[in-house]
């Protein structure tokens, strides 16, 4: 296979990865790593490096739009970034010592978990009771709702912080944004309104990925020949995905189709991981 054909295949695949990642809310990384490793037999270290770079591009691109709408809570984001960046650093350093087939199996498991999370019904809840730590850390905030400003409170700060540490480790180890875990920490544990959780999670993903990307970059895991088509493809794919989302209401059957695709990829990662082929 010539370099040109190889690049074009990755570009096309990354476009669909970005598109599916954006439509399901899972992020492009989850689809691009199985695609590179299973279909093109790229070494998983290169795949993770390229995925991290694409995660930074899509997260920063969409965070730029969200942050201006004033929904993102920058204090919650910054505070929890202590946990995610520390975790990401740990994960990236661990990645060199953990067997690649174990990384593949873990990716499959997290992929299944994230797919199930994305199908979950989203219930908007606004907490009013005050927690001491949230007050001290100035985490309580407000966002512009349809009927004026909505004020909300935050609870279980310690639990959320611990969950973020875990999300950071997985992000650094697997090269994904682990947005589902971040939303779980903020939405289910800290009881932050869903809108704020998702936009703030997205805001944090870029910094988290950057903290581990610096390690991958220096280790030579970020190959320009692979990263170039991946980052361009995923970003354009994610952009088209967000355009489609604006035009059409999130249709139930489309989500299910993607969930099945994602489950299939996850199964393949686990199967090949167990057989030691990755």
């Amino acid at each position: 296979m010539s370099v040109l054909i190889f690049t074009l295949i990755i570009l096309a695949g990354s476009y669909f990865a970005g598109l599916i990642g954006s439509l399901t809310g899972l992020g492009g990384g989850f689809v691009i790593i199985p695609l590179l490793t299973l279909l093109l037999h790229v070494d998983i270290h290169y795949a993770i490096g390229a995925s991290l770079v694409s995660v930074i591009a899509t997260s920063s691109g969409s965070a730029a739009a969200y942050v201006r709408e004033g929904i993102t809570n920058m204090r919650i984001g910054m505070f929890l970034e202590i946990a995610t960046t520390a975790g990401a650093m740990t994960g990236a350093i661990l990645a060199a010592y953990i067997p690649t087939n174990f990384i593949a199996i873990l990716l499959g498991v997290i992929l299944i978990f994230s797919a199930i999370m994305s199908l979950r019904k989203k219930v908007e809840h606004v907490l009013q009771q005050k927690s001491e730590w949230a007050e001290k850390l100035k985490l309580n905030g407000s966002y512009p709702g349809p009927d004026g400003t909505v004020n909300y409170s935050v609870t279980h700060v310690g639990g959320g912080f611990a969950m973020m540490l875990f999300a950071g480790i997985l992000s650094g180890l697997l090269g994904v944004g682990s947005g589902a875990l971040k939303v779980l920490a903020m939405d289910s544990i800290m009881r932050i309104p869903f809108k704020v959780s998702t936009t703030t999670s997205n805001f944090m993903i870029g910094v988290t990925a950057a903290a581990s990307a610096v390690v991958y970059f220096q280790r030579g895991y970020i190959d320009p020949g692979i990263s170039m088509p991946v980052v361009i493809g995923v970003l354009i794919g994610a952009l088209s995905g967000s355009k489609i989302l604006v035009k059409t209401q999130s249709s139930g059957w489309l989500r299910w189709v993607f969930a099945v695709v994602v489950l299939f990829l996850a199964g393949q990662m686990i199967y090949n991981g167990i057989l030691g082929r990755i």
Binding site: V53, I56, A57, S59, S60, G206, V207, A209, A210, A213, V214, F217, I222, P224, S227, V231
Partner: peptide, 11 residues
């Protein structure tokens, strides 16, 4: 790519 990685850090 280095510039892209630097973007969230710059943020």
């Amino acid at each position: 790519i280095a510039l892209l990685i630097a973007t969230p850090i710059l943020r």
